[in-house]
Design a binder for these strands. Sequence first.
DNA 1: GATGAATGAGATTTCATTCAT
DNA 2: GATGAATGAAATCTCATTCAT
Lengths: 213, 213, 213, 213
Amino acid sequence: MQASNSSDKQDAPGARTFTESARRAQIVAAAIEVIAEVGYSKASFARIARHAGLSSTGMISYHFAGKDDLMREVVVEVMRVAEAYMRPRIEAESDFSARLRTHIESNLALLVEYPKHLPALIEVLTNVRGDSAGLGEFVGVTEEMNRVLAERMREGQRVGAFREFDADVMVHAMRGAIDEVVGRAAREPGLDVTACGRELAEIFDRATRNTAP
Amino acid sequence: MQASNSSDKQDAPGARTFTESARRAQIVAAAIEVIAEVGYSKASFARIARHAGLSSTGMISYHFAGKDDLMREVVVEVMRVAEAYMRPRIEAESDFSARLRTHIESNLALLVEYPKHLPALIEVLTNVRGDSAGLGEFVGVTEEMNRVLAERMREGQRVGAFREFDADVMVHAMRGAIDEVVGRAAREPGLDVTACGRELAEIFDRATRNTAP
Amino acid sequence: MQASNSSDKQDAPGARTFTESARRAQIVAAAIEVIAEVGYSKASFARIARHAGLSSTGMISYHFAGKDDLMREVVVEVMRVAEAYMRPRIEAESDFSARLRTHIESNLALLVEYPKHLPALIEVLTNVRGDSAGLGEFVGVTEEMNRVLAERMREGQRVGAFREFDADVMVHAMRGAIDEVVGRAAREPGLDVTACGRELAEIFDRATRNTAP
Amino acid sequence: MQASNSSDKQDAPGARTFTESARRAQIVAAAIEVIAEVGYSKASFARIARHAGLSSTGMISYHFAGKDDLMREVVVEVMRVAEAYMRPRIEAESDFSARLRTHIESNLALLVEYPKHLPALIEVLTNVRGDSAGLGEFVGVTEEMNRVLAERMREGQRVGAFREFDADVMVHAMRGAIDEVVGRAAREPGLDVTACGRELAEIFDRATRNTAP
DNA sequence: GATGAATGAGATTTCATTCAT
DNA sequence: GATGAATGAAATCTCATTCAT
């Protein structure tokens, strides 16, 4: 008999119980709401646990590796929902200009449908810097999405659907304008988000439109 | 440029010695830099004191009624600088469209001149909620400024300089687009902010332009 | 080699199924390795469970009455192995001096054979104080073993095999010197433990040798 | 006016108030006693603070950068005391053999004089592994001290004062034998440590003595 | 006016243990 | 017999604020 198996065994990392997944989802949902309501910095485990009806913060630490892990799941969840909501709507359109309008309008329709998701996403992404290891990645993901969007715009420019402009600046302007509506909606409960969406769509349609003959 | 007296101490309204004002200004300047560099949530008194070359956080508490008070001064200072920088440039223009362009371009020129001021302002304003007593006021101030801006736009619409659109949405879109450049500039050091300003100006010129005959 | 039954469960004294014993043995083996590798204080149930390929710490609590119980089994197991290894080798020798040498050398040979056992034992015994109910007993067991050893030495003194010295101090010196090699072996992987054993044997042979005519 | 001093200022690191130093010393003293009494793993900030008559653990965190920092100070303090106590006594002796005896005896005399210091030192050093950044250094310091000691022994061998043996093993044997007395003294309050010192000195004198003509 | 020292609340995290299934 | 889930205590650390000097 000799000393054996000196390195820890590891379960298949994807294996997760039903109840475990349910709990995680429940906690993520609570986190989204708390973050949207009180902001990232005040969204402590204690508050999230209370909101989720859990008896202790240890519960959250039990299901998530740490605050970063939870926040990552928040981002993943919101992006999942956003993708599922927006992509089919956008892809249903065929010409560049309509896609652009639909991108903006479906993004804000998503805000109407899930009023806490986008505020939470913005809170998390703006309160994360170079630190927090695995979360910085999502800043990268967002930037990548913006790059793809800009590339689409450049295609539109090549085929004459759009005028000449700096596509990166345009994409970020759109992004900023939409996020501003998200922020306003949180501060002004009565705001007609759908109407804002139409206005923004018009703004960026005019800003991108090719007026050459 | 003098230290402002816009926030009064409890007992002696407006009265403040020179050294006191100098200390406050020094601390506010340090706070702006720290907030811009590490973000609002990590901008603790300890970090600000260290950055200002102070030996203890007690110094800050001594000069400011609390964190809210300091943050209010940060906002006041940045707005003072912004106002001093942008207003004359904007007022030098006479027609609506030029004023709009100048608003955007001077705002981003300000970012080039004072790279920490606008990031700090945005950090503070986005990390403040209904709580923190006297700070919510500044969200109101900002909204008031936006309302004034929107009113100018409506004037422009009345005289036919601008097309018909929801002026509030337009103002916030501008606001969001500019703030996005501020954020990008922090993440991408090489970004040509001036060029972004020109692009944004073009975007919102086209978005507001009256194309009717 | 069989799983021992030295620690009884509450109700059914001595009765333990095969799987139960196997599980206990598996956990004890994992505990020995973990303790040797990361030290007593970091050897949490979580780590031991992971090392043993178990999915939860509940498993350990299920099979052991508590951490003390597990640690007691660790001690028992190591002592069992040590006894089985060293005793026949020592008893094969007939004169006092040879027994002393063999005691030291077989102790360190045991370290070569089971590199994790002695480190684990030392970790447990040095991290246990008067508290932890049933574990203090083992400090007593160890002391008892030392007393027996000292008694043997005094016999050797009576028959003139050893010089006069304080047998307790001598035994503890031996103990300390051996344990120090155990510690060194953990810190210096290339250490020639067998050679250390020969050197130690020589040291204590000279320290005990009767030089009188 | 441009943004300036973007990197935090730093006080001269050695600057420390009188009261600050006194508090630190008080906390270190309390830590030494607590560690010696309940062991490293149970020596929590809470316990140390209580022992020192402080009202909160925050007090300790205020004066020390963390647990590692406090432990480092504990080690430094004990080594400082040990050095001040042992060195002059050892250096008062001129021949190798007397120095060896004095090393052992003064080490244990130190234990009589400061009964908590050595137990605390041993606790800290044995409960630190590769982790805890700045503390691993002290394992190195200890090893360095052992190397120096071994070098002295080899000098003694070269001049014929000592017989041939592995000096490293001898030094560690001495170390282990002394530490074992430290441990015993904690468990057996009545132990005559001075007598143990004499016995150990005799043991290692005989173990090293050159018996060749 | 200024400062170092102290404070206590609150944050995240880890742990051994218990419980329902 | 076995297991995943839950729990609450305790640990370290950070923070804004207060106080005595």
